[in-house]
Amino acid sequence: MPQSFDTQSVSRELLRSWRGKRSQIAQSRRLGYSSNVAYAWESGRRFPTAVEALRSAALGGRSAEDIWVAFHGNRPAWLDHVAPDTAEGVVAALSDLRGRTPIDEIAERAGLSRFAVSRALSGQTLPRLPTFLALVEALSLRLLDWLAAAAPIADLPSIAPAWSQLEAQRRAAYALPWTQAVLRAIELTEYQQLPAHQPGWIAARIGLPDSVERDCLDALAAGGQIRWNGRHWQVDGSEALDTRRDRALGVRNKQFWAQTGLDQLAKQSDGLFSYNVFSVSERDLERLRRLHLAYFRQLRSVVAESTPSERVVVANVQLFALDAGTLGPEPADVAASDDSPLS
């Protein structure tokens, strides 16, 4: 589930940050209004549409294009076809984040009606800034990264604690990739049914030295990802940790879990290990890329709905070209969780 944010408070902070040193009246004039809309927006009396907000961001030195490129870690393909600070651009951005996520699921995550979500995603209505932010979080689970791309975190005090916690989690993932597997082990029904936490139980279950278990638990507790209930550790939220903001971290974690797969193969694990080296047309390669992404999305959906938690599993999903050329950008809803093992 996505985190809960006060999107109205952070909207006011964003608007104030984008205004900079200009007066509210001057900002309103620069946006083309004769009335003092900046005051109304920043006071929370009413809020700008996402388009108006993104134009305000541009006046503050953060263009909509720059925000989306920083958020994705690359230039999304839709930017080549539509301006991001237009109604069409907002729809394209949200649709790109959505992938094939059902409307009902988005509405539940965002705390909005199915009708409101449907109209926003179809372009029938322009979402106001707080609703737009709620949709970004519901669709990507990465609102904090979007906000960090849109304004200095120092200007957004309402989300500063959550941002500090997220950065601590990323540092833990870099230093101790096994923290992600330890998280999933804590979710296991068998662990939660123990009379009390047993040091070394998690290590034995997933094949770690006891010292690594201790280090991972310490790092997870420090990052706010787990809490002690008096008898066991419990996971605080189950979101996948996105590491694209730090490309080196993302690459390192992918290498780590790929190597873990190699280690399992060398031990003749009973896991599923398959490969196929082939030549194919560009057209069919695109079909395979889409199948590959669709499989991973479906895998995530099954995992998200699976109860009870009985096994800790890693899925390494790879498709790459050996010759020149790329396979195209990775959609946000896939890349957003590709560094986390699955349980």
Rank of each mutant, 00 (worst) to 15 (best):
A332H: 10
R297Q: 11
R311A: 13
L319D: 03
G328E: 02
E330R: 10
Q318F: 15
V313D: 10
L322W: 13
E330D: 10
A335G: 15
R311P: 07
A294F: 13
G328V: 01
P329A: 02
A336M: 01
S301H: 05
A324L: 07
R297G: 04
D338K: 01
D339I: 07
D339N: 10
F320Q: 00
A315I: 06
V302P: 08
Y295M: 03
D333V: 09
A332C: 11
A304G: 14
V314D: 04
G325H: 05
V313C: 10
Y295P: 00
V312L: 05
Q298Y: 00
T326N: 00
E310N: 13
V302T: 07
D339W: 06
D333I: 14
T326P: 02
A315M: 01
R311C: 11
D333C: 14
E330M: 14
Q298R: 02
F296Y: 15
L322Y: 15
S301D: 09
S301G: 02
R290N: 08
E305I: 09
H292R: 15
E330G: 06
A332V: 12
G325Y: 05
Q318M: 13
L319R: 03
P329G: 02
V334E: 10
R290I: 04
L291M: 12
S309L: 02
A321Y: 08
L327R: 03
A294G: 15
V314S: 06
D338Y: 06
Q318I: 12
Q298C: 01
V302R: 12
A332F: 12
T326L: 02
R290F: 05
F320P: 00
S337Q: 01
D338Q: 01
D339H: 06
S306C: 05
V302C: 04
S309A: 15
G325F: 03
R300L: 00
A324F: 10
D338I: 00
S301F: 00
T307Y: 08
A321E: 06
D333Q: 09
F296E: 02
L322N: 12
A336S: 12
Y295G: 00
E305Q: 15
D338G: 05
S306Q: 11
A304R: 15
G325L: 06
A332L: 14
A294V: 12
S337K: 05
L322T: 15
L299G: 03
V317A: 06
A321T: 03
D333G: 08
V334K: 11
V313K: 13
L293W: 07
L299H: 04
V317Q: 02
V313H: 13
F296V: 07
F320K: 03
V302Q: 12
L327P: 04
V303Y: 06
P308W: 13
A332M: 11
L319Y: 05
G325S: 11
Q318P: 04
F320C: 02
A294E: 14
H292L: 05
Q318E: 04
V313W: 11
A335D: 11
D323N: 14
T307L: 14
Y295A: 01
A336K: 03
S306N: 07
A315N: 13
A335R: 09
G328Q: 06
T326E: 07
S309Y: 13
L299D: 07
Q298P: 08
R300H: 12
L319P: 04
L322M: 15
L319T: 03
V312P: 00
P308R: 04
V317G: 01
S337F: 05
S337W: 07
E330N: 08
S301P: 00
L319I: 07
F320G: 00
A321S: 12
R297V: 14
L291H: 08
S306K: 10
E310G: 09
R297Y: 10
